[in-house]
């Protein structure tokens, strides 16, 4: 007697849930779609009917031609790639090494170092910008990608060490003890046994490390604003600042900055979200 109305109630509730989630999905995506769609339209069509899809009449690549002619987006993109990938590589390598040392070995100062590194998770590295710029100037690294890479490694390490330590602790003792009994060196234990085992955790760390680096404006603006070292985020910011009134160019440059990220996101979203949610449970 109760179950039938109960069932109906549930179907209604499920529908409501879908309606709300669908509405919010539209709110999240619509603004981005509007920008991308209008980037492929002529100036007149952009203003006349902003919500229409490009038609045979209104289709235009003028914006892209202008952007690619006036600014070296290929270079900016390459710079972002280089900085992000090199930083990521060293954050993962040095982060795993430090996490291993801090969790595996007992030595004086172990706790102090662990706390010192953990503090970096909460205290933003940006607050030290004044001294970082001084330091880079004295090392003659201003306007080099190296400066960015060094800062981003320092920025990414604390969280990497934190997450990787959690996983290294879960590696069964027997594995390490067996290796040690066979006289395998500590280096070999780490590189041939531990590193392969914590690969899933590395994926999580990679996500948390990469996104803030790729999207950062602050350090490129301060440490490497030169034309040849601009990253894509800084390049787009400077370009739009210059050509605010050229709607085709602005829309196209935004699209050029958005689309590669979205493509990568769609490819890796499953992994990324798994990493995000599994890392959060801890």
């Amino acid at each position: 007697m109760i179950s039938l109305p109960g069932l109906k109630h549930n179907t209604g509730k499920t529908l409501m849930t879908h309606a709300v989630l669908l509405t919010y999905t539209v709110i999240a995506l619509f603004p981005i779609l509007v920008i991308i769609v209008n980037a492929f339209k002529s100036r007149k069509a952009i203003f006349k009917d902003p919500l229409a899809l490009p038609s045979l009449d209104s289709f235009s690549l003028a914006g892209f031609e202008q952007v690619l002619g006036r600014a070296d987006f290929g270079l900016y993109f390459g710079n972002s790639m280089i900085v992000t990938l090199i930083s990521l590589f060293f954050v993962l390598l040095f982060g795993a090494m430090a996490a291993w040392a801090l969790t595996e070995y007992k030595f004086r100062g172990n706790l102090f170092l662990a706390v010192l590194i953990a503090m970096g998770i909460m205290i933003p590295i940006r607050l030290g910008t004044v001294s970082i710029l001084n330091l880079m100037a004295s090392l003659d690294l201003v306007n080099t990608l190296t400066a960015l890479v060094l800062v981003y490694i320092a920025q990414g390490l604390p969280l990497a060490v934190f997450i990787l330590s959690e996983f290294i602790r879960q590696v069964p003792k027997e594995l390490k003890e067996a290796a040690r009994c066979d006289n395998v060196s500590e280096y070999k234990i780490f590189f041939t046994i531990i590193l392969p085992l914590i690969r899933p955790a590395m994926a999580t760390v990679a996500v948390f490390t990469m996104i803030p680096i790729w999207n950062d404006l602050w350090f490129p603006l301060i440490l490497a604003p030169g034309e040849s070292t601009q990253t894509i985020t800084l390049g787009v910011q400077q370009f739009i600042g210059q050509y605010v009134t050229d709607w085709n160019a602005v829309l196209s440059s935004l699209t050029l900055a958005i689309v590669p990220v979205l493509v990568l996101y769609v490819i890796f979203s499953r992994q990324l979200i798994r990493g995000l949610t599994s890392g959060a449970v801890k």
């Binding site: 590295i125 970082i132 920025q155």
Partner: peptide
């Protein structure tokens, strides 16, 4: 790297 470019600054 962490001490040079994060803690020290």
């Amino acid at each position: 790297i962490y001490v040079t470019f994060s803690v020290y600054p």
